[in-house]
Design a protein around this nucleic acid. Structure first.
Length: 256
DNA sequence: ATGGCTGGGTCTCCCAGA
């Protein structure tokens, strides 16, 4: 089973790239973030034509998440249960016996801002939800744009970024608290080359000089960690014309 | 080069992203 996550920064703009990428990589599941589409504009027909059934949870202009699957989805959950949140950032479904959670974690904008506090509160509520999910789904995968670079090796210039949003200690603790419920960063289950990132600022040099962060993640339960065979970032789409600022992350599993 | 880009909406300016 191949699972993937991609912050597309507007599914309206990126739909042709998503269709190309699905055709090229044939994932069983693709989690999307920042679709930026109200639900009535979700491109269901084009994605179904490509062989994917869809669940989506969108809003106008901002946020928005979706799950695409080659096989049927059950028990679709929209939003973090129990969290009052007008922003549509979470979506879950059970696919082939695997509970799949798609997250678009708030950016936080600036340390100590209202948006930063919202981010930390959101992560705390999500942690509680994932703990519940794990208690009933031993095969749990949580993937998406987590907006946290977990360690300095996930940052192109840790000294310049020290203390800033996306790397600040409270954010890293909140991310570690997600792992503490019983999840592992699939990317770090394997030897990886240095300086692998999943996001690069728009602009002339950031991608060319690999000035990025690794903030898009696939987190897996112990049972899925045992069955995980690979986890890689695909920087290809970031080099295309009119790219998203994020690259997709893929993980392969051997599910007997 | 930490955003000196991009997408969307209120639409030639502002908000938000990361």
């Amino acid at each position: 089973m191949r699972l993937a996550t991609w912050n597309v920064n507007s599914l309206n703009v990126r739909l042709p790239q998503v269709l190309d990428w699905l055709n090229q990589h044939q994932p069983d599941v693709l989690a999307l973030q920042e679709t930026k589409l109200p639900d009535e504009r979700f491109p269901q027909a084009a994605l179904e034509e490509a062989g994917y059934t869809c669940a989506w949870f969108g809003q106008k202009a901002y946020n928005g998440v979706a799950l695409l699957s080659r096989t049927p989805m059950e028990d679709v959950q929209r939003g973090v249960p129990g969290l009052e949140d007008e922003q549509r950032r979470a979506l879950a479904a059970t696919i082939g016996g695997v509970r799949v959670v798609c997250l678009y974690v708030p950016n936080g904008q600036q340390v100590d801002s209202d948006k930063y506090r919202y981010k930390l509160d959101w992560l705390a509520a999500t942690r509680d939800w994932l703990q519940q999910e794990l208690s009933v789904h031993p095969r749990l995968v949580v993937m998406g744009d987590m907006n946290v670079a977990p360690e300095d090796q996930d940052v192109h210039d840790p000294r310049r970024w020290a203390g800033q949003v996306l790397v600040s200690p409270p954010e890293r603790r909140a991310f570690a608290a997600l792992l503490d419920v019983g999840l592992q960063d699939a990317f770090r289950l394997f030897p990886q080359p240095p300086k692998v990132f999943s996001w690069w600022n728009y602009g002339a040099v950031a991608f060319r000089r690999n000035l990025g962060l690794r903030i898009d993640h696939v987190l897996v339960s112990a049972e899925l960690a045992r069955r995980c065979r690979a986890c890689v970032v695909d920087p290809g789409p970031r080099g295309h014309e009119r790219p998203s600022d994020h690259a997709p992350v893929l993980a392969d599993f051997d599910l007997a």
